[in-house]
């Protein structure tokens, strides 16, 4: 049994299921208490204000995974555009998608609450390391505004709001941040961003006071004041862009935080995590952090995504035999908005094979959308699941916890939470 504990997670089956009650009080950590920290909650979890709207149903897992595919297509299209200077793929993919509800950024995402304007208006924004522009719905909704939980931001009621002119450098930066050229309305800068599933936000690119915490206030923060917003974005007020482009929040606040931020996503929607800006000045908490360099791979180095170099995968303590070229051909990114990790098919096949072999004592069941390795644990109180680690350049091992290994909301269908891309070249 000692050997088993080295190579497997042994756990109660119910611990894999989400709880219906918010339990954030037990999640108080030193980092979370920091002055520059925001609370991170799952959008559909019981700790989220957005969850209080009973009229909006929590999406089924299958819906979430369908939406997650849309997110992946959006990422692919942006990378393809970046490397080839073509938007053909984006248009093709957008046409193939049925969703028009902001699902690309709204599937399994997390939200944080920030203050905008003077006086400060609290807004719940989707936390997104895979995009750059921060935007919120704005009055007047000349085009369309979807329903959101908080009242919609009204710039006419703020003393610190100002437009950005068309001929400014900020306005000219929109092309790289959004993939779309700027537009002009009475010499005011107009932004437009599309997320690939026909959800979009269009409005005035403006400046406003952004209040992250009581001590961290930024005047002149450039953001999208969206007056025509297509989608639902699950009732969130907009999106917080944490990508690498010059218009992202980390870049705009670089003078104070030096583009340094960290976050932790909770193990369950019933718990809270944190998003902290700036280096942790306290002792201890950051010592165990292992760093891997951002990828220098072509197509990733100059993109606004955070590129990583995966070097290997282990299952049950054994490194899988996967050629290094499988990972280097297309590279990898880390994204807070994609739910399920996508691997090159060759790597996924090796992972799946090793995982199934070590899980052969459990009955398999139907696939769940993109997840093809699912088990029926109905007749078990506890199970043992092989430990999975992902290795990144610099010998950084990331051990995946049980709820990161399996995806489920019922014990009768608990699935390996990894999926394959279409081909190794993606």
């Amino acid at each position: 049994s000692q050997d088993l504990q080295h190579t497997h997670h042994v756990l109660h089956v119910n611990s894999l299921l989400p709880s219906a009650v918010c339990n954030s009080s037990t999640q108080v950590s030193a980092l979370h208490k920091k002055k520059s920290s925001l609370q991170v909650v799952h959008k559909h979890g019981p700790c989220s204000q957005l969850h209080q709207d009973k009229a909006k149903k929590t999406p089924r897992n299958a819906d979430t995974l369908f939406q997650d595919q849309a997110r992946v297509r959006y990422i692919r299209s942006r990378l393809a555009k970046n490397s080839a200077g073509s938007s053909d793929m984006k248009e093709t993919d957008a046409a193939n998608l049925l969703a028009k509800d902001g699902s690309v950024v709204g599937s399994g995402d997390y939200v944080v609450t920030v203050g905008l304007g003077s006086p400060k208006k609290q807004l719940s924004l989707i936390f997104d390391t895979g995009s750059d522009i921060t935007w919120t719905q704005c009055q007047p909704c000349d085009g369309y505004c979807y329903d959101q939980m908080e009242t919609i931001f009204d710039p006419s009621k703020s003393s610190t709001y100002s437009n950005i002119s068309c001929d400014s450098a900020l306005c000219n930066s929109l092309l790289s941040a959004t993939g779309n050229s700027l537009d002009c309305s009475l010499s005011a800068c107009v932004y437009g961003i599309q997320y690939g599933d026909s959800s979009s936000s269009v409005g005035l690119f403006s400046k406003e006071r952004l209040t992250l915490t009581s001590t961290d206030v930024f005047d002149g923060f450039a953001f999208g004041c969206g007056q025509n917003n297509q989608g639902t974005f699950s009732g969130a007020a907009g999106l917080l862009g944490l990508g690498r482009d010059n218009l992202s929040l980390p870049s705009q606040t670089a003078r104070k935080y030096n583009k340094f931020f960290s976050y932790c996503l909770p193990s369950s929607p019933s718990l809270t995590g944190f998003l902290t800006f700036g280096k942790d000045s306290g002792k201890g908490s950051s010592k165990s952090v292992k760093f891997t360099p951002l990828s220098r791979a072509a197509g990733l180095q100059d993109s606004s995504f955070y590129g990583l170099d995966i070097t290997g995968i282990s299952v049950g303590g054994r490194r899988l035999s996967i050629s290094a070229s499988v990972f280097t051909t297309a590279g990898a990114i880390i994204d807070s908005g994609t739910v399920i990790t996508r691997l090159p098919p060759t790597a996924y096949a090796a992972l799946r094979s090793a995982f199934r072999q070590r899980m052969s004592q459990y009955p398999m069941t139907d696939s769940l959308s993109i997840l093809d390795t699912c088990y029926d644990f109905s007749n078990y109180k506890s199970v043992s699941i092989p430990k999975i680690s992902i290795f990144f350049r610099g010998n950084v091992e990331v051990k995946i916890i049980p709820v990161g290994t399996m995806y489920s909301d019922t014990v009768s269908q608990v699935c390996l939470a990894f999926a394959a891309n279409d081909d190794d070249g993606e």
Partner: peptide, 30 residues
């Protein structure tokens, strides 16, 4: 491109050091 998604990031402290062009991971972040 492979994507390291948010299910697998749960409870990790993920550190973005943009100026240092590096990413950090620490187990048991929350």
């Amino acid at each position: 491109v492979a994507i390291f998604g948010n299910t697998q990031q749960k409870t990790l402290q993920v550190v973005h050091d943009g100026a240092g062009r590096r990413l950090g991971f620490s187990a048991g972040g929350c």
